[in-house]
């Protein structure tokens, strides 16, 4: 039993450019801090004991951009949840991200926490990973060796584990602009501000039938999950309530959510099923 509150000793480096940052990271044993909303508790709990923290806050001006590129929107990794949730470009072009950002944590968390911080931390119950999967977003990772681009489906590896190497930082997340898509982020929490017990991100293009469907889950396993194969079963169809129930049942059966104080595994599966039916009914316009 450890009664924690006080981190181990660490050095603090405040780089003046991203290149400084990358050079410093090459030395190893450093952790990036931006909003610190997950990192500070982990330091206090001594879950992580880095030798150095690299504070990116001075780079905020360069890295919190939201850029309209026509067919896509690029978001710098230091954009805060608050900024994302109130930005007009995000609201009109990638609205699923906008509503999701408004549901991250509580107001204090949203004011400090960043897109890049949350995505890099890869908490299995975090909100963004499901949205990134639904959009099939592209992540730009940068190191002193150069840049590489990774798809969201390849980026998230497991609980708190991603494609990022120790000397890399997440520079940007790029979201395709999907015209004419209905969307919803359903987040089920026991108490305001908590992590999702189950979160469902849906993007769908619907005419008289479902033309495209992207549904991704968080909180239901080791990482965000998108049932690509099952999605196809609903595409090209005029979906009925019965189809949804079967779909939800099948999805729920593939999930292996954890049991914890928020809810047991079997309860979470039930919730995922109910939430799937509810969310898809709404987004696909299925009358029950």
């Amino acid at each position: 039993m450890r009664c924690n509150m006080y981190p181990t000793i660490f050095g603090l480096y405040e780089p003046s450019s991203i290149y400084d940052t990358l050079d410093f990271l090459d030395n190893g044993n450093a952790k990036i801090i931006a909003g610190g909303q997950s990192l500070i508790p982990m330091l206090k709990l001594r879950v992580i004991q880095p030798k150095f923290l690299v504070d990116l806050n001075k780079l905020r001006g360069d890295l919190d951009y939201i850029e309209d590129r026509g067919k896509s929107i690029g978001l710098g990794s230091l954009a805060t949840h608050a900024k994302i949730s109130t930005d007009q470009i995000v609201k009109s072009k990638i609205p699923l991200l906008s509503v999701t950002a408004s549901k991250v944590g509580d107001m204090q968390v949203r004011n400090l926490g960043t897109l890049g911080g949350s995505v890099s931390n890869a908490d299995p119950s975090a909100d963004y990973p499901a949205v990134l999967l639904a959009y099939d977003a592209t992540l730009t990772l940068i190191s002193s060796g150069g840049e590489r681009k990774v798809k969201a489906s390849e980026f998230f590896k497991g609980p708190f584990s991603t494609e990022l190497k120790d000397n890399e930082i997440l520079r940007e997340v790029e979201f395709p602009v999907l015209e004419g898509y209905a969307y919803k982020y359903e987040k089920i929490v026991r108490r305001a501000g908590d992590f999702a017990m189950v979160g469902i991100a849906v993007l769908a293009k619907v005419s008289d039938k479902v033309e495209d469907l992207r549904i991704a889950y968080t909180g239901v396993g080791e990482k965000a999950y998108r049932p690509y194969e099952l999605e196809k079963e609903l595409v090209g169809k005029k979906v009925t309530r019965d189809d949804l129930e079967k779909f939800a049942e099948k999805v729920s059966a593939t999930l292996t959510p954890p049991s914890d104080s928020r809810g047991s595994s079997s309860y979470r599966k039930k919730v995922a099923k109910i939430a799937t039916i509810k969310t898809l009914s709404e987004v696909l316009g299925v009358v029950s």
Binding site: A192, D194, S261
Partner: peptide, 25 residues
């Protein structure tokens, strides 16, 4: 909301991250 869950080994299984004290909401 509030439940100080004790695990089978006798340890307190919750922290203030999941010992849910009501917020204003």
């Amino acid at each position: 909301y509030e439940e100080a869950i004790i695990n089978d080994d006798g340890g307190l299984a919750v922290t203030y991250a999941d010992y849910f004290i009501p917020t204003p909401v």
